[in-house]
Design a protein around this nucleic acid. Sequence first.
DNA 1: AATGAATGAGGGTTCATTCAT
DNA 2: TATGAATGAACCCTCATTCAT
Lengths: 228, 228, 228, 228
Amino acid sequence: MTKPSPKALRRERIIESALAIFAEKGFQEATISEISRAAGVSDATVYEYFKSKEELLFAIPEEITEISIRETEKVLPYLRGAESKLRAIVQSYVTTYENNPEYANLIMLHLKTNRNFLKTRAFEVVRDAARMLLACIKEGIDSGTFRRDTDPYLVRSIILGTIEHLCTRKHLQGQPENMLSLVDPMVDLILSGIRAPQEQQNISIHLHMTGTAKAPETITIVPEERKP
Amino acid sequence: MTKPSPKALRRERIIESALAIFAEKGFQEATISEISRAAGVSDATVYEYFKSKEELLFAIPEEITEISIRETEKVLPYLRGAESKLRAIVQSYVTTYENNPEYANLIMLHLKTNRNFLKTRAFEVVRDAARMLLACIKEGIDSGTFRRDTDPYLVRSIILGTIEHLCTRKHLQGQPENMLSLVDPMVDLILSGIRAPQEQQNISIHLHMTGTAKAPETITIVPEERKP
Amino acid sequence: MTKPSPKALRRERIIESALAIFAEKGFQEATISEISRAAGVSDATVYEYFKSKEELLFAIPEEITEISIRETEKVLPYLRGAESKLRAIVQSYVTTYENNPEYANLIMLHLKTNRNFLKTRAFEVVRDAARMLLACIKEGIDSGTFRRDTDPYLVRSIILGTIEHLCTRKHLQGQPENMLSLVDPMVDLILSGIRAPQEQQNISIHLHMTGTAKAPETITIVPEERKP
Amino acid sequence: MTKPSPKALRRERIIESALAIFAEKGFQEATISEISRAAGVSDATVYEYFKSKEELLFAIPEEITEISIRETEKVLPYLRGAESKLRAIVQSYVTTYENNPEYANLIMLHLKTNRNFLKTRAFEVVRDAARMLLACIKEGIDSGTFRRDTDPYLVRSIILGTIEHLCTRKHLQGQPENMLSLVDPMVDLILSGIRAPQEQQNISIHLHMTGTAKAPETITIVPEERKP
DNA sequence: AATGAATGAGGGTTCATTCAT
DNA sequence: TATGAATGAACCCTCATTCAT
């Protein structure tokens, strides 16, 4: 079905090499020579495919982000409830980063630094993902699943910030070993923080009694024994 | 009382200029000439005070981080309870970053990228702060304030990640306007997520009645009206 | 027959310019800009061909020394006797230096100073030449042409030192005009100093006389008049 | 008798440090800071005593050469014959270099390179020494001790070149260990090369015979057996 | 389409030297 | 007199980028 033209293949090779090298050394420290050597082409050839070093940098997240986002978008409609969706989105983020550590590193450490990246189409895709997450949070609020006073932007910042922090930490210090195992604790924690209280209103108990009893003389409230 | 030697003043000027310019353009894009010009000295003079461009970069966080941390450390003993302390620490972080946006930017976008920064004394101070936060979380767990199954490292990552994300967002997109106003919502949210349940044991109500009454025939539980 | 690639030609041009300028001003005082300008290329181009200024310096003697040495090696087998060989070697040295005064100057004044030069392949060639000379002296000793108590290392030092001194003198003071005319006097002088005495055995003269003569009563030895 | 003013002492200290450092690293590689630090003074102080780095360099040989030369000049009148004098001069050179290896190194490797050194008063002194040597050789020629066809300039070049070569060799390669032990072999060798032949004129043998003998009919010259 | 070759532009860094104190 | 402090002036080297083949 797909017919990978040699042209496209070459392009792919260059992008892969660029990802590896940019991720390892950063944008400034990496050189075109290095990348072209890794890709098995000449310097000049890189410029046949990309107008400049920066354009090559920006070309990297385009595909991978796109793919990841679209996949998530496909799954979402099958899930019921804001909580499930939110958990799925987080899972998707973390899975993507876990499976593409170089890409994660590039995004976290090198692309976020770059002001020009914000004007990029690739960034548009990133932003789409962030919007999806925001929409999901808002949906939870509107549906009463999340507290009405939840600040959806803050919640999103918490989620994204945590993921980013974990990725960065993992890259620079090797910790945590397995980010995926942290998805559930993290989501649980945040959900606990924003979940609407389970109608824990005050409750009146009306006793309908027959007979000639008086009102109770004393009411003793006795805590049951805690059984840990 | 303090007699700021002209030498120290000049050093300060250079650091300030460097902070402004590194924060704006990043380490690689900034040039020594630019910085020295901004500081009103010659290129060579910069090298009288700092051995290299990188050493100049690392000299920046040294003071400002130190000051901020030490201040927090002073306040902490006066606070009772893990929650208060945690809130104070977050407040301290955000205040520091809010008051020194350039510094915040430098740390978030440019220093974290730099592997050599991890070997720096300045980074040691940063790490101290992170340890302080972790200790506070652990204290909450030990004292029963926070749930026993709380992962303190995860909680710290959530807190730090959120702060970092907010700073970065503010720097790159101007949002949120006022980070300080987000401290309480954020801390509240996280605390809700980790707070130990408030002894929500089962409760038995014993009615001591006199007379010949029978047991109540029906018990109707009526929610009170919610008054938002 | 030979097809000098433009690449090789350019390289040659750069080396020639470098030789001229290094010889004139010394390694430190010479600048790459100067050399590249003289060679009609850009600074960066010099670095396409040579990794560093020092490597460029070391590339200079490589060829010229090699050529000179190999030529001498070819001639040597045709010569009989240590004296002829030694004279040929000296002749070769002096010819090389006389024909390449800049090269001579570079070697004498600037390369010998450089400790790194000693690790160079070019220096290996120089050392080869010195070994060749030493071997020739030893051969003369072994064959009885030179005195048995000759110190071959000292003789070599005398020869090389003299050549070097003459070159340096010529470069700095213009004297002597023609080094080649000094080769024979110099070699003669040294040979006189190391030549084994020419079988100066005692000689008996037997006079066969007829008649009744007695043995001679007196023998008078009369020096002939000296005729300068 | 001598009253070393503190000023002169300081000057001396600077010169000594400069000698050590120039000799070790060469003129260009050495820095004023290094020298001043070694001398225990400030950079600026060096400039109180010497107008420039180069002037400091040239100040070094002034004294030491002067002293060495003057000493030789004192001894010379007591020696009889060109050979003794020549030997004494060589001895003096080598002793000076052997006792002051740093100075030797400086002269051989770094001062000879410097064109400006030729204009220096210090060089005048060096030249004086060379003239003294030349005069001595000429004296030997005039007195009939050395061959009439000796080229005194060539002989001087041989002597100086050899000494220089030995010094350089010793500095760069550690060989020869002891230069002084080479003085006699070296001088012997050169003297053998230039010594006037010991009146090995043609000799006539007059036989005064009595009796009636005829002239000898045959004369047979018979070499004696060699006794190795 | 691919590249070998060339380079313009620029930046970090060093140091000899000066001068006010 | 001695020096702490400051700097002007260079230079080596790198690399993204271009272009003729």
